[in-house]
Amino acid sequence: MKIVIVGASGTLGRAVVAELEKDARHELIRVGRHNGDLQVDLTDEASVDALFARTGKVDAIIATTGNVFFGPLAEMTAENFAVGLQDKLLGQVRLALKGQHILNDGGSITLTSGIIADEPIAQGVNATAVNTALAGFVKAAACELPRGIRINLVSPTMLTESEAAYGPFFPGFESVPAARAALAYRRSAEGVQSGQVFKVGY
């Protein structure tokens, strides 16, 4: 399979690359904002168009990227809230909308949300809203995608590798290694299900 992995240089993205590299049949295209085989800015439609012009037809698209705003609700502004909307939500939606047209028949799209969609945390209102919206998008899009194209969402809990940075935001939450979360991306890309949220670690 020819697979585009957006966010390939991040903690989760590196784990997904390592998992998929185990299968010599896969050809991986590593994409990042500044690093990788190719670069893309998911907030810029022209940049996404340019990415797919370079990749040509592919069998799978995986996104392991997206920024959200963390901060107390009492101080949040619409501008703050727009961070997650424009980056993690619309960025991944844009990737799916554009990507459906360069996927081969039976191809797949895998997006990323997170546990906060189901288990809110303090200062995480933007993240909860964005992750929940991604789940709705995937559920509905699966009903309309043609040519046997599938779409799924991977929703991991906090990654063990990120505990030092994010642990204080997730009191009492268990973490999972990125390598375990990566299995869900393989399941999505190589499996048969569509419109699913693959929850990892909760």
Rank of each mutant, 00 (worst) to 15 (best):
Y185S: 04
V68M: 01
T64E: 08
V93P: 03
A46F: 00
R94Q: 11
V83H: 01
P72S: 00
A117H: 05
A164M: 09
D37I: 02
Y202W: 15
E119M: 12
F52T: 07
S9Q: 11
N126A: 12
D44I: 00
D44E: 09
G91D: 04
G172R: 01
D59N: 15
K22T: 12
D105E: 15
A178C: 02
G201C: 02
D118T: 13
P171M: 05
I5L: 15
R54K: 15
A141W: 08
K199L: 09
D87A: 06
A8I: 03
L51R: 02
V154C: 06
G201H: 00
V40A: 13
G172W: 04
F81H: 03
A179E: 14
D41S: 08
L97D: 13
Q100A: 13
E27D: 13
M76T: 00
P171C: 08
A24Q: 14
G56W: 07
D49H: 12
P168S: 04
T160S: 12
S113A: 15
V154K: 05
E144A: 11
I149K: 14
D49N: 11
G107C: 09
N35W: 00
V130Y: 03
A96M: 09
K22I: 07
V17S: 06
S155F: 06
E119A: 12
K22N: 09
L89H: 03
T112G: 04
L42I: 15
G136T: 08
L145W: 07
G172K: 00
E174N: 12
A164Y: 02
T65N: 11
L73S: 08
A133K: 02
T65E: 12
Q193C: 04
E79I: 01
V6F: 06
A18P: 02
V138M: 07
P168R: 06
R187G: 08
N152W: 07
Q123T: 13
V197P: 01
G36E: 05
E174Y: 01
A133R: 01
G107W: 06
A24W: 01
H26A: 09
G114L: 04
N131D: 14
L51M: 08
Q193R: 14
L145E: 05
H34S: 15
R147C: 06
V93C: 03
A178R: 03
P120R: 01
E161G: 04
A189T: 15
E45H: 11
V130S: 04
K2S: 08
G36Y: 03
M1A: 13
G66N: 05
Q86P: 02
P168W: 05
V192I: 13
T112E: 00
F198M: 14
V4G: 03
I61S: 10
I115V: 14
S108T: 14
D41C: 01
L38P: 04
G56F: 05
A53C: 02
L20F: 09
I61N: 07
F69Y: 14
L73E: 01
A117T: 07
A141I: 01
V154S: 07
S188R: 10
A133G: 03
G148V: 05
D118C: 03
F169H: 12
F137T: 06
